[in-house]
């Protein structure tokens, strides 16, 4: 199955959904509208010809400091999915533009691997995945405030280190 065939098939079935098709560095990227994402991912997973049975990665990019992209897609974030098909040895990247207060549908019901990957994106970017079985922080502490991989979060944090309990615990006790 060639990449051209893949593009033709999804264009035919989802004429409205695909905002842009990018090909660079031998990689295929489809920018998909958020409203159609759920049906689109379901199709990629279910279709026996495409058979994207392996969700490689879910991540996000904060385009706040790149106005040429955030203005073009009218979105601050892009949620990025990397898919691979064992059957066809083909990789594809799906991107969905997203505004700050919007949520995306979870794909954890299709690929169980998405469970922790989406939790990490929520933890790091504050992006909410609708329909996720257990959306909570994964790497940062539960009571942490802020989302560290957002571009407006400073590299050295917001003083959390100074407020760690064990720094002052001895003096108080």
């Amino acid at each position: 199955m060639s990449e051209t065939h893949l593009i033709d098939r999804v264009r035919e079935l989802f004429p409205e959904a695909i905002i842009e098709v990018q090909r660079a560095h031998d990689e295929l990227t489809l920018v998909v509208r958020k409203s159609a994402l759920e049906a689109f991912m379901h199709f990629l997973f279910q279709d026996t010809e495409l058979a994207f049975n392996y969700l490689v990665d879910v991540t996000a990019v904060d385009y706040q400091n790149l106005p040429e992209i955030s203005e073009k897609f009218q979105a601050r974030f892009m949620v990025v999915y990397h898919l691979y098909s064992h059957q066809n040895n083909v990789r594809v990247r799906i991107k969905t533009p997203l505004e700050e207060d919007e949520a995306v549908p979870s794909v954890a019901t299709l690929w169980k691997a998405a469970n922790w990957l989406e939790r990490e994106v929520y933890d790091m970017f504050g992006i909410v995945f609708e329909g996720h079985p257990d959306l909570c922080r994964i790497l940062m502490p539960d009571d942490y405030e802020g989302h560290p991989l957002r571009k407006d979060y400073p590299l050295r944090g917001r003083g959390e280190r100074a407020r760690f309990l064990f720094d002052t615990g001895n003096q108080e006790g």
């Binding site: 991540t59 990019v61 400091n65 790149l66 990025v80 990397h82 691997a113 922790w116 990490e120």
Partner: peptide, 26 residues
Amino acid sequence: GFYIVSDGSGEAYRIRIRPPSFLHYQ
């Protein structure tokens, strides 16, 4: 896997590491 987004400067705009252990632990 490494997913790198570049804005043309000397530093990456975003580096995502896709670690095998994260998914194995799940």
